[in-house]
Computed example of a mutant assay.
Amino acid sequence: MHTILPPMTRRAVLGFGACAAAAAACPALAQGSDKPIRFILPISAGSGVDAIVRAASVALGKAFGQPVVIENLPGAGGITGTSVLVKAAPDGLTLGMVSNNHVINPAVYKKMPFDAIGDVTPISVVGATPLVLVVNPKLPAKNVKELVALLRAKPEGYNYASSGNGTIIHLAGEMFMDEAGVKARHIPYKGTGPMVTDMIAGQVEMGVVALPAVQPHLRSGALRAIGLCGPARSPAAPDIPTIAEQGLPNYAVEGWFAVIGPPKMQAADVQRVHDAVAAAFTSAEVREAMDKQGNIIKPTSPEQALSYFRSEAARYAALVKKANVVLE
């Protein structure tokens, strides 16, 4: 498992100067302000969570009173990057943003290098992002009914992509096939970026992806939306109907994202990080960006985050068992 950090890029230090300048104005949050906050994203650039954190990067720097450096460490459904996080010092200077995959992995992988709940410090489930089922526009299907008819006429004659085996994107696709009573070949990728690239190129016909990650491609016509996966339409894309309202009423899944820290963080550091994250994501400029992406922001307390992690882990364990997804 590779844990070598990539070289720092200009993109990775987005907002560095603005955040450094803000440190002097935020003395209450500027503990260790000469050191940057290292924000590990255990997912690829171009994913929904990546878009969310980068949209909030400057506000996070202001709220912390410290520079924020974002590092993408994708691989193994998030395990690669999180393995780095769990070994970091519990001083509040190394944090991570994880998604559903974090609590799905224990049910998917036979062996885990860490305890997904016991070896991290849940700080806040920040919000949720809509998932959307999309297809390459060459596929002659414009809605759920037409897609299901296509798949039934040619069982396993089409491919659906995911960002990796056992990820929430994979399970969302499996759940759709199960609810619709159809089959398609699963093609796993190493991250959302390459998956979307190949869907646009027509190498794979369809896949579920976070709405923020594909909004530009939907607007340009490079991809076509079949339906939103969540229980309700998104204000960011009101014209896209849900899959549930198109004849699969029991289908509902959406992505959530949460801030975590290494294990054994002190209560004061947990509270400091929680308050800074909540301040950043509820600021006017970030709320505007999140509204455009279609994300719902409702930061929870650390206690609520821990409880949510446990309940979601149990929920996805049942789904994984039903889908029979097991990885080495």
Rank of each mutant, 00 (worst) to 15 (best):
M1Y: 01
H2C: 12
L5A: 14
P7T: 10
V13S: 13
L14A: 12
C19M: 10
A21L: 06
A23Y: 13
P27E: 01
A30W: 00
Q31C: 05
S33F: 04
S33Y: 05
R38G: 11
R38C: 13
P42S: 03
S44E: 02
S47W: 06
A51G: 05
A59S: 09
Q66C: 13
N72H: 04
L73I: 15
P74W: 02
G81K: 09
K87W: 01
P90F: 05
P90Q: 08
G92D: 08
G92C: 04
G92A: 06
N100I: 09
N101W: 07
P106C: 03
M112F: 00
P113A: 03
P113E: 03
P113L: 00
F114V: 14
F114H: 07
I117T: 14
S124R: 08
V126G: 09
V126Y: 09
L131P: 07
V135A: 06
P140M: 06
N143M: 06
E146V: 00
P155F: 02
Y160Q: 12
S162W: 04
G166Y: 07
G166T: 11
I169A: 09
H170C: 13
A172W: 12
G173V: 10
F176N: 12
M177N: 14
D178N: 14
G181L: 07
G181A: 14
K183A: 01
A184V: 14
H186N: 09
P188S: 05
K190M: 13
G191E: 02
G191N: 03
T192V: 01
P194H: 02
P194V: 01
V196P: 12
V204L: 10
G207S: 13
V208D: 11
V209S: 14
P212K: 08
A213M: 05
A213K: 04
P216V: 01
P216E: 05
R219W: 00
G221K: 02
A222F: 00
R233F: 06
P238T: 10
T242Q: 00
T242S: 01
L248M: 07
W256N: 10
A258D: 12
V259L: 12
K264L: 09
V270A: 05
Q271K: 03
H274C: 09
H274A: 07
D275I: 00
A276V: 01
A280H: 08
T282G: 15
A284I: 03
E285R: 08
R287S: 01
Q293W: 11
I296H: 08
I297F: 04
T300S: 13
Y308C: 04
S311G: 02
A313R: 11
A313V: 06
A323E: 13
E328Q: 10
